[in-house]
Nucleic acid binder design. Sequence first.
DNA 1: GCTTGCCTTCGTGTAACACGAAGGCTTTAA
DNA 2: TTAAAGCCTTCGTGTTACACGAAGGCAAGC
Lengths: 149, 149
Amino acid sequence: MHTVKEAAHITGLTEHAVRFYTDKGLVPSVRRDKNNVRMFDEEAVNWLHGIKCLKQSGMPIEAIRTYVELCLEGDSTIPQRAALMKAHKEAALAKLEEAKRHIAHLEQKTALYQAILEHRMPDTTNPATWSDIRHMHSDVFYAPVAGRA
Amino acid sequence: MHTVKEAAHITGLTEHAVRFYTDKGLVPSVRRDKNNVRMFDEEAVNWLHGIKCLKQSGMPIEAIRTYVELCLEGDSTIPQRAALMKAHKEAALAKLEEAKRHIAHLEQKTALYQAILEHRMPDTTNPATWSDIRHMHSDVFYAPVAGRA
DNA sequence: GCTTGCCTTCGTGTAACACGAAGGCTTTAA
DNA sequence: TTAAAGCCTTCGTGTTACACGAAGGCAAGC
């Protein structure tokens, strides 16, 4: 049995988050002791891990609660749960792909900055390189176009 | 020149978000016409793309604003910008890795559900498979352990 | 001249916590 | 035995990044 603090430490969540989740009904197996203190068994800690996974992959709390309740209803809800989880997985995959594109962009940007710092600046007078440069949103080589104060 | 609506459509942001960003000073090159209407040139649209990239990769608005202001200050801030961007890129990469782990977990979960739906249920009486099964947080094969109503 | 459609500002609502205050229990330490 | 240390509790406000709706302005078309 673990306290809030321990459960938080094990799962890598904050104590605030752990209390928040339990109070929202996301952790079915949490009990209270005689002093009204939340007690987490291994089952509860597993739920916290699962909740963390779902949440960090983009599922909102309310959806997680729906899922948890379906689990509590027993085997008859397995088809619904399967569909729900599959949909979520695909949404998460889509986000992952977008994240990769963003990272690629950030890589370009850092590479460009690095080139400047190493005095290997691209030739801004050569039109052939302009598209690359402009692709970086102009903020490195071009002053903000239209005025400011 | 584009209106808010057009800029939103081009960048895939909502109109609300576009107004929000401009009002927060994240888009330097936005002007107003005689009717006080926001006008976005290509430069501004590029900024919006960049902001979207930074934001979706986890940079908070305030940090983006700091970055934008450094850009406006000219070449002398390039070292700071380079450092800032590199740090952000690495943070984003770390998140990407975590996201991949979450996705792997979701893959397992959907696969397990799929197996059940296809009546290829793992042998829950065979201790050799238990760790895999329990790894799914028990919510598929095990009723929630400690009571409920 | 009136509707349509876009824009404006303003103000409240939302999600998912973070954080601090005020207080209760139990354990240790003098 | 009393006092301080550490947990825990609930409660309540603060934060971020918008979403959404209301109320109204201006320009264009019919």
